[in-house]
Write a protein that binds this DNA or RNA. Structure first.
Lengths: 194, 194
DNA sequence: ATATAATGCGAGCATTCACTCGCTTTTCCT
DNA sequence: AGGAAAAGCGAGTGAATGCTCGCATTATAT
């Protein structure tokens, strides 16, 4: 039956994420994952050909969540002037990183980059492409500047601020702090673009 | 008989770095490291209590190299106005990341962050402190702004540009590209600060 | 030359862990 | 009900690997 197996798959992915967050990558053995999922190792290998594939599924789920938000934001921002748009994007970047900070941290710090590096790169490229398209459509509001370069610098800067904010300050982030941070980052990026 | 043992220690650290770069973290077993170093596993454990400690030594050596450059730059820049200083710092950041890009990549991507995370944080804090001190000494050239916040944003942005540049473009970086990148990043940061 | 200490050796132990396979249970269909 | 197919089970396997320990070699001191 399908419902049953989908539940098993979900339980496995969920359990993997939980263990990664609660006990770190090292403790995440396939046996343990199966145990936490309430499933046998045999079933695990019925659905995932390797441990790597399982971890990749977790990464994908998380990235897909983030990309959903980012894509939506970039669509809804398409008609806004640069200052409004950048502000929104900075806000969204921080929000996206805050979805599941602990998981984000583990994925960023503890997962050995192997095969699925390709996937992460794909997400990166997508963000790049989308941002670049937006910037090109707003060329008239900007100074003369190579769009690829501008995209690279802006995305790097915004991503870094969001990333470091979430990693360093963990969960303790007041609304006010976030607002100030958004203000400042927006100011930097907008000032740079025009 | 210190010379002999120092040579052994050096050989071990060097071999570890080589294996990390050439074959990745997974292939870096203690047995293999000892073999490449031309030393026995027993000797390895005479000088390093664990594999982790060995990897930590490699990380430390690399970080120390980078910090040496950064510290020097920040000292020699102390009397320069903001625009000159920032330009120098951006340049140095990229240079520092280019010291050993392959090792840098492995350290950034493949090493599970365990204990020695503390060390990395210490380096981070030092950079922060130094930059902040500089900014505070130049307050008069800047708009009214919280120094801690400004430091956080500037360091994040510069670091991210340098990091991504080196990671994405590997070794293929023309002088011209670097100069443009430095120009643009400098422009962004300086524009932001004043 | 002899004794003592420092350094080095590497086979092997103990453990962990990804993964397999033969079997059982559950679900579906007629 | 009966049987086939789908899903699940978990003890067991084999390989990898971090690390130990008893012994061998080399340096220093007397």
């Amino acid at each position: 039956m399908q419902a049953r197996s989908r539940a098993t798959v979900d339980a496995l992915v969920e359990a993997t994420a939980r263990i990664l967050v609660r006990e770190g990558f090292e403790k995440a053995s396939t046996n343990r994952i199966a145990e936490i999922a309430g499933v046998s190792v045999g079933s695990l290998y019925q659905y995932f050909p390797s441990k790597e594939a399982l971890v990749a599924a977790v990464i994908d789920r998380h990235n897909e969540e983030i990309m959903g938000i980012v894509r939506a934001a970039l669509t809804e921002v398409a008609d806004l002037p640069i200052d409004k748009a950048v502000r929104r994007l900075v806000t969204v970047a921080i929000e996206a990183h805050r979805i599941d900070p602990k998981l984000h941290r583990v994925l960023a710090e503890q997962i050995p980059r192997t095969g699925q590096l390709k996937d992460v790169e794909a997400f990166n490229r997508e963000v790049h492409t989308l941002v670049r398209a937006y910037l090109e459509s707003r060329r008239n509001e900007m100074r003369k500047i190579d769009p690829g370069l501008a995209t690279f610098i802006c995305v790097s800067a915004i991503e870094a601020v969001a990333h470091n904010t979430v990693l360093n300050q963990a969960e303790m982030l007041s609304e006010k702090t976030v607002r100030t941070l958004v203000d400042e980052t927006t100011r930097m990026v907008v000032g740079y673009l025009r």
